[in-house]
Every structure is written in C-alpha cells, then in structure tokens.
Design a protein around this nucleic acid. Structure first.
Lengths: 217, 217, 217, 217
DNA sequence: AGATAAGCGAGACGGTACGTCCGGTCTTTCC
DNA sequence: GGAAAGACCGGACGTACCGTCTCGCTTATCT
C-alpha cells in the first residue's frame, strides 16, 4: 500500500542540498570523478551520508543534479531573469539562438560558444564525468540526454527548420541529421581529444557541413 | 637509469596472458565494466592477482589489451594472413577501404559496416567501457585513440585524399574534418543513444555531408 | 590533544564483540594461532573485517581480549557472583588462595590447580599463543603480564607474606622470589615441554623449594 | 623407490649456506622475527628462494641452524679447539661447569653467566624468536630443546649429582627438579619481562633454592 | 502546548574490492 | 644437478568505500 519509503520532500533541508551540490562539484573538479566518493562529498558538505542516500540513488545522480543546479544559477545570473528549466542551456551560455538570417554566421556563433563551454576547465571535469557515465549506464545516459542535451539541441532544430522554410536549407534534409552533422564532429574531437577544439575548427565544420564535400556545379 | 622494477617480459607466461584476456572480455560482456573487478578476472582466469598487477596498471589497460588482442585475432581469422598492427580495424571488419570510384557509395559501405560493428552486442560493452574510460582518463584515452581509432581513421583520410585528387572533393576541404563530419554523427548517436543507429542513418549522413545543407545552384 | 580518530565506544556493538571473541577462541583452538587469520575470525563471526580493525590493533590483541573475557565469564559462572577484574584468575580456577595454616599443603593445592589449567586442552592453545607472542612483542607481553599474570601472582605473594609473618618462611626471603621459585619450574616445563607436567611434579617442586636443596642440620 | 626429493647434500654450496645464516641472523636482529621473511633472507643473502626451500622446511628452521652455527663458531673462537656439537652451549658461554667444591658459588657463577647471555642484545632477539616459536610449534620446540637446551642443562645435572654424592644436596632431591628450581625462575623473568634480570637476582635464587623457604632448626 | 514524527549529523556495521606482500612451487638459464 | 633468478598461484594483509542501520538531536507539523 503505502510506499513506506518515500521521504517527505517538503521537510527537505535546502541547506544540505546546496552544500552537497557544492561539495560534489568541488570534489569532482579537484580530484576527478573516480576519486570522488559519496563519503567524501558528505564529509565536505558537513552532512550525514544518509542524507545523500535519502535523496539520490547514485553519485552520478548527485552530480547531475548539482550540474543542473549550477547551470540554472549561471543562466539566472547571466539572463537577469530565471528561465524555465527546459530552456536552460548546459553551461548557461545561450539564452536563445540567434537568427540574423545568415545561417552560417549564426551556426558559427553558437558552435563557437559551445567550443568555449567545452574548453571551460571548471565545467569540463563534470561534463566529461557525466558523459562517460552515461555512455556506460544507459539509464543515466537517457536522463543526461533528456535533461541537459535535448533542450539545447532543440534550439538547433528550431533554427534549422526556420532556415529550411526560408529556403536556405534543402527540403530533403532532416534537421535532426543536420544538427548531428554540426555537433557530432565537435563532440568527437572533444570526447576523444584527437585534436584541439578551436573557433577555427567550429567555423570549418560549419562551412563544410553547409557547403558539402563535393564541388558545386 | 634501469627501471629497477620492470618484470622480465621474456619469462612471461603466455597461457596466463590469454586466460586473463579471455576472462576480462567475458566478464565485461556478462556483467558490465563497473561490476567487473580485477579479483574477478583473476579468479575466472585461474590466475593470481599479482600476475595481473605485474603486467597491467589498471583494469582498463587489461581490457584494452584484451580488446586489441581480440581485434588482432579476428582480423587474422578473417584475412587469412595476419595483418600488421596498424591495419587491424577496431572490430576486425575492414581489411581495407573500398575504392570503386564512387565516393558516396564507398563511404556508405564503410559507414554501414561501422554501424554494424557498433551494434554488435559482443563488442558493444567493451567498446563503450573503453571509450568512457578514455573520456575521463586522458592518458588512457590517448592510448585508445592511438592504438584503436587512428589506424582506422587513417583509412578514411587516405580515401578522401584520393577523392580530392580525383576532383570529387573540394580542394579547400581538410580531409580530417571531412572524416569527422562522417564519423562524428555516428559516434554521437551511438555514445549518447539519442536515436537508433541504422544503415539508413549512415546513408543519410553520407548524403548530407557530401551534398551539404544548402541548396545547390 | 584529541586523538582525532578514536571510534565512539558508546556505539559499539556488543553482539559483534562477543561473536569476535568466540570466533577467535574457536579458531585458535581448532587450527592453532599461526593459521588463524583476521579474515577467518571476521568470517566466522559474521562480521566485517573493519569491525575488528576498528577496535583491536592486532590478532594477538583480539585473542587477549577474548581470553580475558572468557576468564571473566568462567570466574563469574564458578563464583556465583561476578568478581572484580583484578581478582579474576587466568582460567577462573582460584576464587581465592587457601590458607589452612599449612603452607606446603596450600601451595600444593594451588600449584596442582595451575597444573590442571595448563593441561586443559581448551586453554592451552590460547595461552601458549599469547605467551609466545608476548615473548617476542614486549608491548603485548607487558599487557599480558599485567592483565593476566600479575593478579594471579599477587595472591601468592599475599599468602607467602602471611606465612612469613607467621614465621613459616624465613624473614630474609623476598616473597617475589619465593613465588618465582615455585612458578618458574612449572612454567619452564610447560613452555618448553621438556617433561610432562603432573601433580606429583607440583608437589616435588613445593617440597624442594620449601625444604631447600641442602640437608638440614 | 628413490626418494625423488632428497637433494644431494654433497653438492651443497657452503657459500650459500653461510650467506643464508648470516642474512637470517642479521635480519632477525635488525627487524625482528615477525618482519623477517624468507624472501628477505634470500635477497639479503644473494640467493634464490628455492635454495632456502631446498634445504630448510621453515623460517624457524633456518634461524635455528644459523643460531647453532653461530654458537658453534663462537665456542670455537672462545675455546681454541672446536667442541663436539653436543657440548656447544647455547651462547658459547661455558666450556664446562665449575666444580670448586662450593656448590652455591659454582651455581652463582653459572647462573650469572646465563643472566649475561640472556641480556646480550645480539642473541636476545634470536633466542626469544626461537623460544617463542617453539612454544607454539611442538615439533620445533622439541628440536630447540634437544639441540640447544638439553646439552646445557645436562651440565647442571652432572654437577648437582656430584654435589649430591658429596652429601651437599639431599639424597631425595631429583637433580632434574633442582635444576628447574634454579633455571625456571630466571627463564620466567626473562621470558615474561616481569622484572629486570641481574646478577643479584641470580644469587638470590641460588640462596633461596639451596636454603629453602622455611627456617632451619 | 505537548506529542509525534521526520529530517538530520554522525558514524558503526556487514561487506566487497583494492593494491601489496609473502609463502611455496615451478621453470629457465647458467655453471 | 645445484644455484640464481624470478614468474606463478594462492591467499592474508590492512585500507577505503559501499549502502544500510541505528543513535540522539533538532525542527515542524498535528493534534
């Protein structure tokens, strides 16, 4: 009958929640994800272990929450007004998606911002950790994608669809695939560290993707 | 100068090495990377723990060796004659890279094969584990890229350069970026599991990348 | 000043403590001290290893505690009422020290009891182990002597001093030495297993010690 | 048929044997018995582990051999001429047993020498180790007693029997017990470290043992 | 207001795995 | 065939964390 287990979220201590978030982010940044332990987070946050286990199922979940919280706060600071959750970008960079009419320029603007985010040393450790965890743990990966990635990617899709309607993108191109053509190379380079991730690279990717590989008539 | 501690590779037991490889692969496939332990590998391989610690610095290193060995053996079986290391593909799929003169068709052939590899349930667990580990651990990631990924990608670069010389690819396109335009989307989808990875998807990516997003004159 | 690490004895689980005692005694009796391992004790007691390491610094310390506990409980059972720690004899044999007025007879009574204790197969393994450990490890030996031996020997000293006051023992004899004259030979024979330890031997030792080696006028 | 196991003692390397002895004694003296390992002895002696296992069944056996060897060499140095094995005293102290006619004086001389030996810091570690091991391991203890202790004690028995024949010791006293009356207290004090072991103590023990506890007519 | 109960800091607990050390055996290469 | 060298299997060591479980203590609501 009764769930006998669910804690009462109303009584939850906000102070502890924040302290745990901060501790988690700090430790992951300082020591890396592997070396960060739940005991360590609890100790650093001045919190009982049980308080973590009560509200989160895993270290990764704590970190993801902390990351979302951080993103939200950063966005809030940047945007002046708090944004609804869904609109929060992963690093808080883009309050929207530019539409100057010049698709290539707009994409370059956004991809350059993404490059900057991925090169941000503070966020890097956490993002890498969560991505890696999601790669191995499907359930966590789904949450990661849904909560952090999809909202961001949806903006691309919107912009691309607009470009398509304006005739700047071929009708038979699936916007979802177009998006991956742009994001995929960046992520590939960032995740595997094959080569450095620069603004120039972002520009080249946009140009290539837009212009295609083969020569034009 | 001398390393003072290095074990004598000449005396190394081949039987143990193979047993450890097999056990590692089996356990990762059966239970996942997280749940696989060095003790478990040792037990399954009928080997003392120290024999693992003597030759490998970490669980990931064991697995990577095992994976390389597997790839090598698979390639050997497939190719009849053993190939030099560099030519071994990650899953042993491609002994070379087709060049029928039709770039789009050739790329589709290869990307479809890559899709099949990535969907291979046996290899999936191991590849995901190694990739994820490499994302978090730069040193391991570098080895992973160097030993497994680069050889494979080099084939793409060769083929693309050939196409470029034949005038099928624009001269100003960097083959390395062209390659990432093709591989990046696949990896993105596979790693993040956003959408299923199919032959149709591979074809679409090739078409998009080759044709570009914008309409042709 | 604070020890910064000391566990909270108030929260200590009595159930675990007893289980560990029992397991330690059982294993030492069954397999000998050498073959008894901390892991084995933990497993047998159904306890985590850390619970042992938290409260004891070494295998020997566990065993000594277990032995003291056993002695205490045995004495309690025997004596009806629990005795203060100091009065607990090593095996719980002697609730006090007889004083019939006949010193030789009293000493024989007590030494015979000691012989019986030393021949008790249950206690033997543990006592030997602790003694041997104490011989090599001065710190442990001091604890062993202080907690187990001294209380017992103090009884001898008391009895001998009484005899001295009654004129049954020469005034110039140091009771401590007299005591060692009686106990030393027993221990020597028991520890080194040179010859069997019997009641007859105890009697002879008492007679010799009391009468001296040289003929009386 | 053939024992398939027994190594050919004729081919044995004397150099290794000595090196092992020296290493064993040095390590036990420096680090204590517990911390001394067979691997350590082998390394220190510049010898393969197998060379130790080939000739000795255990660490204790190595040490005992080393100790006997040391005692032999010491005695040889002291006595000018090498003595047969049986006559070697444990520490090489007594080439014989004095017989000045004054039993008490002779015993004090010998017991004082024993006290000195037991206080010798070089021998102490080894002797304690062997004694302790013998207390726990009956087989080893028997060897220890037979090879090291008995020859020494036999001298006491001889001297006491002579005294008995001369009428200086009561006829009904068993020399073996008389001996233990003298040695037992010393060993007791030394093994258990209850009180310091001095010449004065040796004297007192002799006086007490000879004179007895009770007042003389 | 007093009772009830939940969250909380703390940390002991039964466990699992870590990475190291050593015991004893086996194998290889030299002498 | 003994000896130096050292890899091997096994297994205990002592440590670090896991996730669960009590403890009192502090709130915070509900009679």
């Amino acid at each position: 009958m009764a769930t006998t287990k669910a804690p009462d979220a109303g009584r939850r201590s906000d102070r502890s929640r924040r302290a745990i978030h901060d501790a988690a982010l700090a430790l992951v940044t300082e020591q890396g994800y592997r070396r960060t332990t739940i005991e360590g987070i609890a100790a650093r946050a001045g919190v009982g272990k049980q308080t973590i286990y009560r509200w989160w199922p895993s270290k990764a979940a704590v970190l993801m929450d902390a990351f979302l919280d951080l993103a939200g706060r950063t966005a809030e600071d940047a945007g002046g007004a708090p944004q609804p959750d869904g609109a929060a970008s992963s690093g808080g960079s883009a309050p929207g998606f530019p539409d100057t009419g010049d698709l290539a320029a707009d994409l370059k603007t956004v991809l350059r911002a993404t490059v900057d985010e991925l090169n941000n040393p503070v966020l890097e450790a956490v993002t890498r950790a969560l991505t890696a965890e999601g790669i191995v743990d499907a359930k966590l990966g789904a949450e990661f994608v849904q909560q952090l990635l999809d909202p961001q990617l949806a903006l691309y899709v919107t912009r691309l669809r607009a470009a398509q309607e304006a005739g700047h993108v071929r009708a038979e191109v699936d916007p979802r695939i177009a998006l991956e053509l742009l994001i995929g190379p960046l992520m590939h380079r960032w995740l595997l560290r094959t080569l450095p991730l620069t603004h120039a690279y972002a520009d080249e990717v946009v140009d290539c993707a837009i212009g295609g590989l083969t020569p034009r008539a």
